[in-house]
Structure formats: C-alpha cells, structure tokens
Design a protein around this nucleic acid. Sequence first.
DNA 1: CAGTGAGCGAGCTTCCGCTTGACTT
Length: 903
Amino acid sequence: MSKLVIVESPTKARTIRNYLPQDYRVEASMGHVRDLPASADEVPAAYKDKNWANLGVNVEDHFSPLYVVPKTKKKVVKELQSALKNADEVILATDEDREGESISWHLLQLLQPKVPIKRMVFHEITQEAIRHALDNCREIDENLVHAQETRRILDRLVGYTLSPLLWKKIAWGLSAGRVQSVAVRLIVQRERARRAFKTAGYWDLKAELEQSKNPFQAKLATLAGVKLATGSDFDPNTGALLPDKRVVVLDEAQAIALRDRLWGQPWEVINTEEKPSIRKPSPPFTTSTLQQEANRKLGISARDTMRVAQKLYEEGYITYMRTDSVHLSDQAVTAARSCVQQMYGKEYLSPKPKQYTTKSKGAQEAHEAIRPAGTEFRIPNRTGLKERELALYELIWKRTVACQMADAKITQLSVLLKVEDAEFRAGGKRIDFPGYFRAYVEGSDDPDAALENQEVILPPLKVGDRPSCQEINTVGHETQPPARYTEASLVKTLESEGVGRPSTYASIIGTIIDRGYVQMRAKALTPTFTAFAVVSLLESHFPDLVDTGFTSRMEQKLDEIAVGKTQWLPYLQGFFLGESGLENQVKVRQDQIDPAIAKAIELENLAAKVKIGKFGPYIEIPQGEEIITASIPHDLTPADLNPDQVAVLLKQKTEGPDKVGAHPETGEPIFVLIGAYGPYVQLGEATEENKKPKRTSLPKGVKPEDVTLEMAVGLLALPRTLGGHPESGKNIKASLGRFGPYVVHDQGKDGKDYRSLKGEDDVLTITLDRALELLAEPKRGRGSRTPLKQLGLHPEDQEPVNLFKGPYGVYIKHGKVNASLPEGETEETITLEKALPLLAEKAASGKKTSRKKTTTTAKGTKKTSTKKASATGTAKKTTTKRTTTRKKSPSKATNPDQSSEAS
DNA sequence: CAGTGAGCGAGCTTCCGCTTGACTT
C-alpha cells in the first residue's frame, strides 16, 4: 500500500516525487477532471429531456450544476481510480487558488475514496517546503470551492444565454462571454476612435547650435511667452486640440516666417537646470508581462511564448509559467543576488533584497513569479539551449537578476535659450550610474521610450553663454490616431482590468479570431464587421456585461464568498432571476430587438449600408426601386472599406463586371469580379442554363486591374497538365488551391503528392522540369521527416512501418496510425513483429470522434454532418454508460445523506 | 469553398479555466 498524492501537472508530479518518501505515489490530474457538459453530446441520457440539460445548470433547483467527465479526461480519471486501489491515504496537493481548490473537491466527489483524505499546499518545490506542507495538512476549503463554482456557473449563464440571442439576431455560430466580449469591445472601441480621429498638423523649429565647437540641438519651446503646442496638447482619441490649452499652434507658413525672422539673431543661455532622478527595475515576470515582453523584444506571439515557456518549465529551466504573482522565494532572491555579484560586481547589487507586490486586480498568487529555476540560476549561454528557448530563458534570467540590482541614477539636463521673443530648450541626459540597465531595460510599445538608457550629451553651458546658430529647420508633425491593439497591449489591458487569467490570455485572442470578430494584420488586431454588429447590440442592451468593471465586481463578490462573507446562492439568484435578472432581460430583448437593425452597421462617410448576412458581410445600396447587394470580401474589415471600394462593388452589379476580353477560341467574354473570397475571373455569363460558369480566383498579389486577357485565359484553363512523370508515367499538373498555387503528381490509387510553389514560381508558366525539382524535395512539416528507423513493410498492405521521434517520445507509424513505444521497449529492441499488434490495437481504439473545427468563421457554411452523435445510436449509449455523472449541488457536498441520489 | 442574402423548420452552434495531447490533413 502507498499514499497517493495528486497534483495538477505531470511535471510537478515528477519533481516532487524526489522529495517524498518511497511509499508515496504521485499522480497528475491534468487540470480539471469534471465540468459542465460542453455541448449536447456530452449530456448523459438521463438528462437529455430536461429543459436545462444544455445549460448544464438547473436554475430552478438551487442552481445545481450537472458535472460530467469530458471525453479527454476519461483516461486520466481511470488511471487515478486504479492508483487509488492501492492507496491507504489520499493527499490532494493541487494549487492553492480558487481553481486548484475546486479541482481537489471534484477529485473527492469523483473518486469517493474510502481511505483518509488530506489537503496539502505548498508554494515551493524544496525538500523543506514539502515536508512542512506534509506536516501541516488541512481540510478542503468549502467556501473557496463555492467561489469557483459560482464563477463557473456565472460564466456559463452569461455565455449560454447571450450567444443564442446573437444567433437569432445576427448570425449563426456567434458567441458572447464575460471575457471575450470585453476583449472584442476594447478592440472595436479603439477602431471607432481611429475612425473618428482627425489628423491635425503642427509645426515647430529645431536649431543646430554650437558652443566652443561642441554641437547640440534645441527645440522651440515658447513664443512671446506662450507655450508651443506639442503632441500631448492634442486629444489622443479625436486628434483635436484639447480645450483650455493656452498654446500656440504654428502652421507651415508661420513656421517658415518665424525661422526667417530668427535667423541671424543672437542667442543667449538664460537658464540651466539639472535634475537627478532614479530608475527602478521592473518586477519579475508574470504570465502577462512575459507575453508582452516576448512579443515586443523577440516578436513571439502569446501562444508561442507559452509553448516555449512550457518546454523550459518541463525541462527544469524555469518555474511555473502560468502565474499572476511577482513574488520571489527567498532562495530565488539569494540566487539572483549571487548572480549579480558574480557577473556585475558588488556595487551593482541593490542595498537590500527586494520583494515586489502584485498590483493587478484579482490576482490569486498561487505560484511564484516566472524566474530561472533552482537555488542557483543557470547562466543563459551555458545552458546549451538554442534559438527561441535560449532567447526566452535569457529574457527571464535578465529580468529576474535585474530585480536585485541597484537603481540606475540619471541626471536630466535642461538648458533654456533665448532668441528674440522665442525660447528654445535643449535637453540632455547623463547616466551617472547604470545600475540594472546593465542587465535589462524593459521594452516599450513607444519607440521613444526605448531610448531610456541612452545618454544625450550636452556641452557645458552656463547662463549668459552665447552659442552660435548653425542652422534652423522647420519640422512638421501630424497627430497619429490611437494604435490598434496588439496581442501584447490587449493582454496588458485585460490583465490590469482583471479580465481573464494567466492560463487563458493566449487563447482569448484565438477565440475572437476563430469567431470571426478579429483579424490579425501584421501585429495589429483589427475588428470585423461582425464584431461591430455584435458589440453594438451588446452595448445597447447589456451595457453592464461588456464593461471591464463587470469582472472586477464579480471578483469582489467571489472573494467575499471565499471568506464566507457572502452567500453564493443569493448572489447567483440576484444575477440571473427576477425582473432585472439576466434570464428575463434576454427574454425581453428577444422580442424587442429587430434583426434587421442588429445586422446593420452604421459607418459614417459611407453611403452604403453594411449588413451581416448568412455568408458574411455585404453592402446594400438602394438604386431607384430596387436594392442592390454585393458581397464584401472576407478579408476586408471596416478599416479597409472606403467609398472607392464601395463604388467598384456597386459598379460590378449595375454595369456588369469588367470585361477583360473575349476567349480567343470560344469567343466567350471573360470577366473580372470581386466576391466574398476576393477577386476572380469568370468565363461567360451566369445564365439559367449555365448557372455555374467556370471561375478561378486570382493568385495572391495580383490586383483585379492588372489582369490581362492572356493571364485570364491561363487561369481559367487550370489545372494545367505539365507532362508525365519519368518514373510513374502519371501526369503532373499545376493549379491553384486553398493554400495557393501547387503542383501535384497524381499517382492514381497510390495517392497524390502535392508541393506548394515557391515565391519565384508562376503557376501559369512553370515547367515540367521545375515541377519535378519541387516534387523531389522532401515535404515540409513534421509528418514527413525521415524516419528514425525503418522496421519493414506491413504484411497486409505492404506499406512501410517506421519509427519516428516525436516531442513525446519515439512512436511507430504505419500510414495514419501512430502508436507509442510501450514501456521497456527502445528504438533498438522494437521489431516489426512486436509493432504489428500495437498498431492493430491502436487502429481499433483510435476511432477518433474528435470533432474538427471548420476553419471558416461564424458564418461558414459547414458541410460536414453535424449529426454524428445521433447517427450512431448504439455508440452513443455505451458512451453514456461509461460517463461518470454526478449531479450535486455544492450545498449538499457536506451532507453525505443526500449524495446517494448520485448516478 | 463558391460567388448566395426570403424561409418550409430538425437539430445544432455557445461560456471560462485548469492541464497535456500527438501531430499535418
């Protein structure tokens, strides 16, 4: 018998195993093990007919939730159950935050252990900390569990009542939620501000001066005693000059006149100022700040940052990467300080060890800040890490070490000069002591601020000096509209408002892109027409829910619930039930909202009306009696749509499409049109008998106006046969596909071998030789790398059975079936004979039902059958039987008498 | 993929947060 310890992550399990006695077995739960049913096919048969089955919460019965084990967690639960059989004690060691406490509670509910149970928490993985935790076990904190459950239920209620309203009023498959809708709204608000922004121009003067042969620069500061306008005097949102600003704004002519008037006049220094200041190092990384900095300094997306960080964590380089805490353990502080001393010397050490305090709203601080792991930090270039992993580790190392370094000491210099009635200012900066600048300077979205650690030298100047003027230049400025959000700046805003959690920042952006609310343009998050429509609806009917303050108010209540100050049930009742509750509010809106209005988007300066249709956005223009409609290409957002483009779309409909010419052989006309998937060429007109004339999209980069007759004929003739393959004799063809131009070697029943064309290739002119060259290159991507070892051919189909190395170990591959090596087998010991039964077993069990998301957005015309679950009645039944289901209201959790109704 | 936009009306979409999975068609 042994003691079973359950933690959340397998990596953590592996580490703490070393610090526990031999008779302790450590397993990982892999996060939550139960949840509300995600969709209809997860609802157990016994609940299918309940009207709340889909919601997963029985609002009428004390908001009792229906919990199921999701398909992906069945395996983990099974393993935990079998581990439990040999245990004489269970120790729940999940994280000490709201979600972690809840995971422990769910494990208890699900496993129903008959042996003693303990709850243990620790914040550091050291021998001492774990021993201490083991000696100080406690009970599960029911209040904290209630707080989590309240959060979970509230999110479900918001998401699953608002989303259906959007389906009815705007478009199929849309979504709304406490977090995503706030994110989308922020992005839409920013775009609105950009649209409303009026660029303003202002001018100033810059003088090139010289004092004792030392050149320096000065900028016009005041004119006749009045301050000259600078960028900060304009409203960043509208671009207009802020009211009540006593400033003078120069236009170009005035600036030139002033320059000419001042030219040749004597200059005099009238004041000098020296202001000492210090800069303090930024706190160590949290998930959010790491994502921001990796994005700014390394150009890595939030998702990739987390992937790389996970790898570093698993390999023991850094501490846990999903955290909202800036706390450093004592050993971390000591390690950082010893790094400073060794690498930079004693004078660079901060006088005292530094601790930072977390400022974000709603932080739960279950973990440390992200830092190099261990009691001694490994020096980045001695780790053997490469590329992104090295870059990210180095970033983390520097930031952590900088935390324990001395402040930087700077002197700001300011010299005021007078010429006629104008005053110029020269600014300088002297770094008296670089301090932590030696290790780390925080990146910034503002390029000017990135110069933080650079000196600006001024010659020694004193009052009464008369420097000579070499040159005066006029400088024009234009106010810039507020920048679109990037991943980094959105995460920053969400975090500071307390919206979303470390584990979700990276996926929030994925969600709103998947739903078709946002497109990524270079680094800028650009909202779509759908986002405009959805945000308008939510703002006018549910303003509270899409306000950033909603989450902070919720968090406040949850905190009260966690300490027992507030009851969870009345809070949910107040939120959902009654006259002003969400349920009724949605019902009322159901009748009030006119879909025609909800689907329409008002954009100023645009005669056309934009509407959200079944297949995406389209424009609508009244033309006399009738209304003309035209699709807007899917990759066009409100930011791109201007009157010119509207005119083109309109013209195509009224005057017919642009004719490129007549086909040289058939004489049929060829047109260029713009549709939802962008510009395309069409042979002949669409008529009753020829409903679908031949059409081909233009290749990327080709503009509709550049299409020649020759090109159009070539495109319409695709796919083009290049000739036979010298070995197989089968045809090689070139064509355009979903992912751009390609060549294909069609080997009949042996499948097709595809290669994408490279940048320099043209699908219309590519030769057979070049195609063969491309086909000879190995396929890109991981699926077709060279195998580690070839085991031989499968006796059934004579297809190769090979060994590959994946990120999770070596696996056997036969066609599409992958099987991992069983315990005890290695690359050397495995043979074809041993591999065959493994593959057969995998093929039998591997009838994956994982539903593939279509890549089309909300409006996508999904062609795949959505009736998978009901189509196989028998399969469904067995699934339901295996589902461990418990309906249990948390209030009953402490009352064992009532839990017998379960299952 | 397909160049539509009305609507017979079955059955479906959708939330947030915790974790790793096994790749790619």
